[in-house]
Nucleic acid binder design. Structure first.
Lengths: 243, 243
DNA sequence: TGCCCGATCGATGTATACAAACGCGCCGTC
DNA sequence: GACGGCGCGTTTGTATACATCGATCGGGCA
């Protein structure tokens, strides 16, 4: 793997996990030394972060980690609603049989999955990611896909800021099932509206979590020890969202 | 101005104007020599082009100018419809009085403007760009704005591929007026639907132009002589679209 | 004669040295 | 005491040299 890619992935993950909090200045020499590369690949990584919107130019020529306030999250969901409803609409129009039927069954069985503790949640995230992937493939719209990918980066960041909620996940499973069924029935309008319903509920959950009295703002996830595992198998989706 | 910016703007404009046609390989050393800079700033420019989707990695590690077929344009408008209808909806919700009233009057007067020849068209493009800018400002949604900006790059490229059509512009003026009026009346649904109508008509015009028998495919616009003008004043919008 | 392997060549990827620009602080003056 | 100008230092921007990877083409073997 190229150094620039590795460094980009590292910085990106640090930002998404809130280990690099908004306002942190991303000095070239400092980050280059920290990550053990020269400035050249690091600059490329910073450029990609800026293109993704994870970093913005601050005062002077400095690059700082971008902010993500409650207002930002609201604005983010205004974009998300536009993109994901269109994605659902197109998926309902073009879906090929089989894939979504299986997903529907899995969403039906999801509440049982969610009675268990943490492993069950992880499994549900994978399921939600599978739905995303199925919609991505079914809609067959490269430009929309690109925008969705860029959006999901920020969606992940927002979700990791808020708190996971078991009751919410059970409800989300029902909403996902509804979307899946609408796609199966090729009901474009219903698919779009069910997606909108889901997104509104999801946004409300996140915002409520932010204002909760016991919410630890920007609780940075501990950096995972660089365990010498063989290689983490790639998830069906790099950034599971949709909960 | 930084060399990397200048080179990026130059390459970008070459691609939008179809002087660099799809499939052209963007070799680092070759382009660096052609544009008179070293590989370092050129690499940064290429990275930005790739992030915008104007260039894609081809076989090997080569970067090539991205394709823009009729199917691509259709897919592009699937994204565009999602973004611009949402933008119109939000603009209708949040618009501040005054701006759109003036735009409506100008769109009403547009047909007379369009009886003249080329200068009239250029003026209409500026007017359409003004509407874009007004919507951008009124919707007040940074993430949506970002996606729209990225989209417009490709929209410009598509428009420059097709042929300007005077009759179409007159009709477009009417569609724009309808959108403006809906925003003035704070009618979100109508604003969104009027935008959808406009985009469908616009897409149809572009596709028809492509299949026209006398259509010169990829007629490259001549590179403008680097006239030593003092400095081109920034247009209200860098990429006027919306016709 | 066809397939596979390897060397060579050309490209991209990385490191580093140099240049320039901007911020910041100090000093002088008003 | 406050404001403005000037110089220094740190940072980013650029150029270039080197490393490394992959593609292609030729030769050898089956």
């Amino acid at each position: 793997m190229r150094a620039s890619e590795r460094v980009h992935a590292s910085l990106r993950e640090d930002i998404l996990a809130w280990r690099l909090v908004p306002g942190t200045v991303l000095s070239e020499v400092e980050q280059a030394q920290r990550l053990g590369v020269s400035r050249t690949p690091l600059r490329e990584a910073l450029g990609r972060l800026a293109a993704e919107g994870l970093a913005v130019v601050g005062k002077g020529r400095t690059l700082v980690v971008s902010d993500l306030s409650a207002d930002d999250i609201r604005a983010l969901f205004e974009l998300r609603e536009a993109l994901e409803t269109q994605a659902a609409r197109l998926a309902a129009r073009r879906r090929r049989p089989g894939v979504f039927e299986e997903l529907r069954d899995r969403f039906e069985a999801a509440p049982e999955l969610l009675t268990a503790d943490d492993p069950g949640r992880t499994e549900y995230y994978r399921l939600a990611a599978s739905l995303d992937a199925a919609v991505d493939e079914a809609m067959d719209s490269p430009y929309l896909l690109r925008s969705l990918q860029g959006l999901r980066t920020h969606a992940v960041r927002a979700r990791r800021l808020s708190r996971d909620n078991l009751a919410r996940l059970v409800k989300a499973a029902g909403e996902h099932r509804l979307i899946t069924e609408a796609i199966i029935e090729s009901d474009e309008t219903l698919a779009a509206q069910a997606t909108a319903v889901h997104l509104r509920a999801s946004l409300a959950t996140i915002l409520a979590s932010l204002t909760a009295p016991d919410h630890a703002p920007a609780a940075p996830e501990p950096a995972p020890e660089p365990a010498p595992q063989p290689a983490p198998q790639p998830a069906p989706h790099p950034n599971p969202v949709g909960v």
